[in-house]
Computed example of a mutant assay.
Amino acid sequence: MHASPDDHLTIGEVIRRTGVSASALHFYERKGLIYAERNGCDQRIFARHMIRRISLIIMAKRLGIPLSDVAKVFATLPFDHAPTHADWQRVSRAWKKELEERRRAIENLENELTGCIGCGCLSMKACLLLNPDDTLQGRGPGPVRLQEFSDSRSRRTRG
């Protein structure tokens, strides 16, 4: 017998396949990220295609992507049948933009770690030149230079 995306797996089988705890699966289900049906014994059973959703949740969590963002991406995917290749392409395009913005922000942080980020600490030599007497505090809280750079790049790529 060949496995199919529409096959149903018990919660134990999903746990073994994904490494995700039962409590996490219940949580994801309550958040609307995954869906489980009930069998005749009132036990949760998952369509095999839910494994892909769970795997993407795992990776998103590792990358620090909030579950609310994952939920937005998953909102257009069907629960009642395996998403098609076209469904995943559509979702991929939407998520790709956000991931590109995150990648740029991480690269910017990496490039500026040893320079002045405009946080007000004044502990780096560059801070005394780029943010004398913490003048950047007038632009707002936090790492002002990093945030402004990230925001301006983000606007350029969206516009």
Rank of each mutant, 00 (worst) to 15 (best):
A75Q: 14
V91W: 02
D133L: 08
R102A: 11
D42K: 15
M124V: 01
K31V: 07
G140H: 01
Y35N: 02
R102L: 15
H81F: 03
R17E: 13
M59D: 03
I57F: 06
F74A: 00
R30C: 07
M124R: 15
I15K: 14
C121A: 15
R16F: 00
W95K: 06
L113S: 06
I51V: 12
C116T: 06
R90V: 05
L130A: 14
K97F: 10
E101W: 03
A94T: 07
V14P: 07
I57D: 03
A94W: 02
R30K: 15
Q89M: 12
R52L: 11
R48M: 05
H81T: 09
R52Y: 04
A47V: 00
T135R: 15
G40K: 12
R104D: 15
L56K: 04
R102P: 14
E112F: 05
L63C: 10
P66G: 04
M50K: 10
N131W: 05
D80Q: 15
L56H: 11
K97H: 13
N111V: 06
I106P: 00
S21K: 15
G115S: 14
F79P: 00
S23V: 13
E98L: 07
S68I: 04
W88R: 02
I15G: 05
I34C: 01
V91N: 02
Y35G: 02
Q43M: 08
P66N: 03
A60K: 03
I15A: 13
K125C: 00
K31L: 15
G115F: 13
R102W: 09
G64N: 11
V73D: 00
P83N: 04
K61F: 00
R139P: 01
A86N: 11
S123P: 00
P83Q: 04
E100R: 06
V20M: 15
A36Q: 01
A126C: 11
A94Q: 12
G12N: 10
G115R: 14
T10I: 11
D134W: 01
R93T: 07
E37S: 12
P66V: 03
G64L: 09
I45L: 06
A105P: 01
P66I: 02
N131K: 06
L109A: 12
V73N: 03
L33G: 07
V73E: 03
H26F: 12
A47Q: 09
E110L: 12
M124F: 12
H81S: 11
A86K: 13
A82I: 11
G19Y: 09
A94K: 08
F74H: 00
R30F: 00
K97P: 01
A82C: 14
G19I: 06
Q89I: 12
L33F: 07
S92N: 12
R52H: 03
R62F: 01
A22M: 10
G40V: 08
V73C: 07
F27Q: 03
R38C: 08
